[in-house]
């Protein structure tokens, strides 16, 4: 029976001292009875291997001990819905504040590589979210502890069902086919318009093209890169709009729209990073005027980049939000 004692000793390591002896004595009695029965069946004493089989079937010591311990939860079922509600409500706010702070730093403080600063901000986001989650969890754990230890016996306040907010049906209707056709047509027109731009800059710059010609301003190479990316972006959008003509659920649409947003951000980041958009090609444009134009455009592109990043974060949140809601329902 050395094996049994060793098994019980291993279980005892995980049990609280107050109930250890009692629990082990009961387990010993039950296991010995089981072994007696088995020996009676076999009509001989059990071998060590057979004892080991019984103990193995009974379970690992730590798992057996765990079942004797009271069930504990950091945040109990009373507080948990409020905890989840707080996390869900506060998360967009945290993301917004983080984006504003980081974007302001990138726009007005950082003087280095803009793409590097954005990458750094994105990489640091999970850590910020982790801290946010940890702080909320600690606050609610303390609240739970206080709630639990108070043993408050005050009855729950009666609630009035008539005070519930009015029912507003969610508008989740699919767009009509006609609306999709109009959308596709407008996109095609826009695409053709953009394709025509290299042949006639007036289409994009209007009378400004005459002004640029008059001051002898040349276009920087960044516009070629940007234009290529813009064509890719419009092509992806065209594919999405054609595929969207098909009725029924379109689970691929949201991720592809995120891809479009990412391409837009890449385009804006390229423009921000370039810093030089027009260069003097003659004596009519002096270096100072070119600098002023370039700096103004750079600021505009930084604002555009900021807006696009915010839009992406909002879209990502909308994309992941339904899955979070489902998990919440599972509780």
């Amino acid at each position: 029976m050395n094996l049994l004692e060793r098994y019980l000793q291993a279980i005892g390591q995980y049990l609280p001292p107050s109930t250890r002896q009692d629990t082990l004595a009961e387990l010993r009695a039950n296991l010995l009875s089981q072994m007696d029965d088995r020996a009676e069946e076999l009509n001989r004493p059990l071998t060590d291997a057979e004892v080991a089989d019984i103990l193995r079937a009974h379970g690992k010591p730590e798992q057996v001990a765990l079942r004797y311990l009271p069930q504990r939860s950091l945040i109990g079922p009373t507080i948990f819905p409020f905890y989840l509600f707080t996390l869900r409500r506060a998360l967009p706010l945290v993301l917004l504040i983080y984006t504003i702070v980081r974007a302001s730093t990138i726009l007005f403080v950082d003087t280095g590589n803009i793409a590097h600063s954005i990458l750094q901000a994105v990489l640091q986001l999970p850590f910020t979210l982790l801290i946010f989650w940890a702080v909320v969890t600690i606050v609610f754990s303390v609240f739970e502890y206080g709630h639990f230890t108070r043993h408050s016996c005050t009855p729950e306040k009666p609630w009035d069902p008539t005070s519930l907010p009015t029912f507003t049906p969610t508008a989740n209707k699919e767009r009509s086919f006609a609306a999709k056709i109009v959308d596709l047509t407008l996109h095609c027109v826009w695409f053709l318009y953009v394709l025509a731009v290299p042949h006639n800059l007036f289409l994009i710059m209007g009378p400004g093209v005459f002004y640029l010609n008059s001051i002898a301003a040349g276009y920087a190479p960044v516009w070629h890169t940007f234009y290529t990316l813009l064509i890719v972006l419009l092509s992806v959008q065209l594919i999405i709009k054609i595929a969207a003509l098909r009725p029924g659920p379109q689970p691929w649409k949201a991720p592809l729209e995120i891809l479009v947003k990412l391409l837009s951000i890449a385009g804006a980041a390229i423009l921000v990073h370039a810093k030089t958009y027009f260069t003097p090609t003659g004596i009519a444009l002096n270096a100072h005027t070119a600098d002023v134009i370039n700096q103004s455009l750079n600021l505009s592109f930084k604002i555009l980049l900021f807006v696009l990043v915010i839009t992406l974060i909002v879209d990502l949140w909308k994309l992941i939000r339904p899955s979070i809601a489902t998990e919440r329902l599972a509780f």
Binding site: T23, L27, N30, Q34, A57, H58, G59, Q63, V64, R67
Partner: peptide
């Protein structure tokens, strides 16, 4: 019922 379920349940 498994032992590891029943005995703690009794407690």
């Amino acid at each position: 019922i498994e032992e590891s379920t029943l005995y703690p349940l009794l407690r």
